[in-house]
Computed example of a mutant assay.
Amino acid sequence: MCYDISFASDIESIHDILPAIQIQGELRFDPTFHKLGMSFPTWPIVVNTNNRLELHPFVWGPIPKMLNTPDKVKKQRQMFLNARSEKILEPKTMWTAIRHQRCLVPVTGFYEYREIPGQKNKQAYFIRVKGQKIFFIAGLWTLSNSWDIEKPEKITTFTIVTREANSVMKQIHNGGNNAGRMPMMLTNELAEMWVKPELNDDQIKDILSFSMPSIDLEYWPVNSVRKAHPDDESVIEHVDEIDLPPIILQ
Rank of each mutant, 00 (worst) to 15 (best):
1 M>G: 13
236 I>S: 07
81 L>A: 00
26 E>V: 00
248 I>A: 00
113 Y>P: 06
197 P>V: 03
231 D>N: 15
89 L>Y: 09
60 W>C: 01
197 P>C: 06
121 N>R: 15
231 D>T: 08
14 I>W: 04
19 P>D: 05
175 G>Y: 14
78 Q>L: 00
9 S>R: 14
232 D>Q: 06
119 Q>G: 01
142 T>E: 15
182 M>W: 11
67 L>V: 05
196 K>T: 12
232 D>G: 05
106 P>S: 03
81 L>V: 00
72 K>L: 15
25 G>A: 10
214 S>P: 00
116 I>C: 03
33 F>D: 04
172 I>W: 11
58 F>L: 11
158 F>M: 13
23 I>T: 14
140 L>D: 07
21 I>F: 02
94 M>D: 09
152 P>K: 02
53 L>N: 13
233 E>V: 10
108 T>D: 07
173 H>M: 07
87 K>M: 12
69 T>F: 01
113 Y>F: 15
204 I>L: 13
86 E>N: 07
49 T>E: 15
61 G>A: 07
111 Y>W: 06
82 N>V: 04
205 K>Q: 15
159 T>K: 08
104 L>E: 05
84 R>D: 09
69 T>V: 05
159 T>M: 09
8 A>P: 03
133 K>L: 07
151 K>W: 10
185 M>Y: 05
46 V>K: 01
194 W>R: 03
199 L>V: 00
158 F>H: 10
85 S>L: 03
42 T>W: 01
89 L>A: 02
65 K>V: 07
116 I>P: 01
185 M>G: 13
242 I>Q: 14
176 G>A: 01
110 F>L: 09
14 I>K: 06
193 M>Y: 06
30 D>N: 13
207 I>H: 02
154 K>C: 01
120 K>G: 00
89 L>R: 04
45 I>L: 05
249 L>R: 10
195 V>P: 04
228 A>H: 12
225 V>S: 08
154 K>I: 08
14 I>N: 05
187 T>R: 08
212 M>Y: 10
160 I>D: 04
65 K>Y: 06
198 E>W: 05
68 N>P: 01
22 Q>V: 12
206 D>I: 00
155 I>W: 12
30 D>T: 10
112 E>Q: 11
35 K>N: 09
36 L>M: 11
200 N>Y: 06
158 F>Q: 05
58 F>G: 03
187 T>D: 09
232 D>V: 06
204 I>W: 11
235 V>F: 08
186 L>W: 07
70 P>A: 05
225 V>P: 12
180 G>M: 10
224 S>G: 11
133 K>F: 03
8 A>L: 03
91 P>S: 02
63 I>R: 08
173 H>V: 02
38 M>V: 11
160 I>K: 06
181 R>L: 14
151 K>L: 13
39 S>H: 14
120 K>F: 09
114 R>D: 05
65 K>R: 13
128 R>I: 01
83 A>T: 12
61 G>P: 01
20 A>E: 15
12 E>Q: 14
67 L>Y: 03
55 L>C: 11
204 I>T: 04
165 A>C: 10
219 Y>S: 03
